[in-house]
């Protein structure tokens, strides 16, 4: 019984953290779930690992889970949140909760839908910046390239820094090539619109909320991650810009 509870709480915490949730939310949710099942919980969460002690009647069980990857998945955050609420209300048993958390792993959007969303986002962002007509069409494909390069590199387990540099380099090359054929387009608008889809929005927002909650260590390390990604994107496009000007 003990170890099943630890497994459930650890699985919930891991899912929250790897989906980009704030550290304080992860700790709170783990504690709430443990309390709902009648256990005392001490959780210490950082962006790269979870330390968890679950106890009852002077018996304690401690587990450590190392976290190596982080993605952005608001659906899972909302899903785990709903499960922990229902568990606290007593609407769910331990087994049902474990099953529901496993079910959350299923993809919520198809690749086609996500690709479409990326293109819509790139076009709209370029429009907001002031891009019109041809620039919008070029931006749609720029977003498509940025997204597909990242997905392909993900298969090869490339780290986020390399994948940021590679995709921004390729997108920038594409944009300058496009300008060669359509000299009237403004490359910065298209480039920024296309690369926006690589900006780690969830990490930035989580970092802010963690710092405000007093989770200074986790907040600053997430903010550093976001800055490193921004620097990688700038470096990749700077490389391409330098090549094309040369």
């Amino acid at each position: 019984m003990h170890s099943e509870v630890v497994d459930l709480i650890l699985a919930a915490g891991e899912m929250l953290l790897t989906s980009g949730a704030e550290v304080y939310r992860t700790e709170e949710t783990m504690e709430r779930m443990g309390k709902a099942l009648g256990y005392s919980v001490e959780a210490y969460v950082t962006p790269t690992g979870i330390f968890l002690t679950v106890g009852k009647d002077q018996e304690f069980l401690t587990r450590i889970r190392r976290i190596h990857y982080r993605t952005e998945d608001l659906g899972r955050i909302a899903g785990v949140n709903a499960i922990s609420r229902e568990l606290a209300k007593g609407d769910l048993t331990l087994q049902e909760a474990s099953q529901r958390i496993k079910d959350l792993r299923g993809l919520s959007y198809t690749t086609f839908q996500r690709v479409l969303a990326v293109m819509v986002a790139s076009v709209s962002f370029t429009f907001i910046l002031g891009g019109r007509q041809m620039e919008l069409i070029v931006a749609a494909i720029a977003g498509l390239i940025a997204f597909s390069v990242t997905k392909v590199l993900e298969h090869f387990n490339a780290n986020y820094y390399l994948s940021g540099i590679a995709s921004s380099f390729l997108v920038a090359n594409y944009v300058y090539l496009a300008q060669y054929f359509f000299p009237e387009i403004s490359t910065p608008l298209v480039l920024v619109g296309g690369l926006m889809v690589l900006v780690p929005g969830v990490a930035i927002a989580s970092a802010v909320r963690d710092i405000v909650q007093g989770e200074l260590l986790s907040g600053t390390s997430r903010a550093a991650e976001a800055l490193a990604i921004a620097a990688a994107l700038a470096a990749g496009s700077a490389l391409a810009l330098g090549l094309w000007r040369w």
Binding site: D73, L74, Y109, S122, S124, I128, G201
Partner: peptide, 18 residues
């Protein structure tokens, strides 16, 4: 409209519940 679509596009990219 553009801001609506940009936010919506990113929301899908971040796998928001429908």
């Amino acid at each position: 409209l553009a801001a609506f679509l940009a936010s919506g596009g990113f929301a899908v990219l971040y796998k928001i519940p429908l």
